[in-house]
Computed example of a mutant assay.
Amino acid sequence: MASAERQILPVNSMFAEPAIDAVRRDDGAIILRSRTPLAAAARCSGEWLEHWARSVPDRTFLAERRGDGWTGLTYGETRAQVRAAAAWMLAQGLGPDRPLAILSDNSIAHAVLALAAQHVGVPVSAISPAYSLMSTDHEKLRAMIRLLDPGAIFVAQRAPFAPALSAIESLHRATIIAGDGDGTSAVPLQSLIATTPGPEVDRAFAAVTPDTVAKLLFTSGSTGQPKAVINTQRMMTTSQQAKAQLWTFLREVEGGPVIVDWLPWSHTFGANHNFNLVLSQGGSLYIDGGKPAPGLFDTSLANLRSKVPTIYFNVPRGFDMLIAALKTDDDLRQQFFSGVRCIFYAAAALPQNL
């Protein structure tokens, strides 16, 4: 026999009041179910972009560090570039069976192309740059490309990815897009965002359903070749709808949440959780070119001195390095805690000392 009990946990002003049913089974398992129904979610991620581009077109959505300052795109500018790139993809025959593969790390260009693909029903697969830049045999990258059969492959800069592109050249029929493309060996990114979108983009966007495949995210490959995990539009939008209902403080952040984030979009934490959180809430994402590694975390600290996030995401190693910096830098500590309302970690257990 299983017994049922109802629990009301203490109210927290930043979060929804938990209201759950707990069913204790004879085998010791406890099944928890929320009594709060999930409200209707967006049809697709493109609806978020369309909404914010209409309501706050001049608000910064994406920004990245260039030199001593930040350069970015507003919601209105992002929508314009997304529609243009989407028109190019449709003209090139990309679709459900011919996805977009992105080999480069987080960037504004990466975001625009990924959103463009999702906008018109083209699955996008962001592949960790390590498979291209650190591998010597590119075996796992080759396996991924064989599986995807992409219609287009994007790299931010052609030269660093030249060995990887050479290794997969015979395995695909994709068009190579390069952020620095010269128009001969690769299509320049600029030509995509210069495309004039027509009614075909509107038709394709209207045809996207919650069951449309939005992404193919690869597993780590620790038990063999990486496997492509299907992410539908519904999986992304309902997850963010649940987050919005639980993290009620998100609605109270004027101008939407601000994050300064390095977590890679080839993984669900950085992409489906962090990126989509900002997009769904109309916030601003400052792309951090650093990471919690020797010689790179100084970049993250410089970015935190420049922009104060309202939510800070990281992995345990990142918090270990951040705490060391906060203990010795009074200005950074005061600035950081002046704006941060929520700190969130994932990817591994957080040691008790942190």
Rank of each mutant, 00 (worst) to 15 (best):
Y345V: 07
I8Q: 12
S300I: 07
L133Q: 08
R305V: 03
I343L: 15
R6C: 01
A22F: 00
L171R: 05
G183I: 07
L141I: 12
T71E: 13
E5L: 14
I108S: 07
V11W: 00
V23K: 15
D298Y: 04
A167G: 11
V315Q: 02
A91R: 13
R35F: 01
L279F: 15
D105I: 01
V308N: 10
D105S: 15
S34L: 07
F313P: 00
S34G: 13
R6Q: 05
D137E: 15
R25W: 10
I193C: 01
L32W: 12
F275E: 05
H273L: 14
S104N: 07
L216A: 09
A214F: 00
R25I: 03
Q352T: 13
P123E: 02
A2H: 11
W262A: 07
G339K: 04
R305S: 08
V253D: 05
I323C: 08
W247T: 09
A293F: 12
R173G: 15
A346M: 05
W70C: 02
R65D: 01
H138G: 05
A174E: 03
D330S: 03
C342D: 05
A204I: 09
D180W: 03
P188T: 10
W48K: 11
R234L: 12
I343W: 04
N272A: 12
F269T: 10
H51A: 03
T196C: 06
D298G: 15
K215M: 10
Q157M: 06
G72H: 03
A324Q: 08
F313M: 09
N272V: 14
F154T: 02
W70V: 00
A42N: 06
F313D: 04
I153Q: 01
I193L: 10
R341W: 03
L322V: 05
A156Q: 08
A206H: 11
A159D: 13
G181L: 10
T175L: 11
A167N: 05
S220I: 10
A80H: 14
V253R: 14
P351Q: 12
A214N: 01
V155T: 01
G339S: 08
A130N: 14
P257T: 06
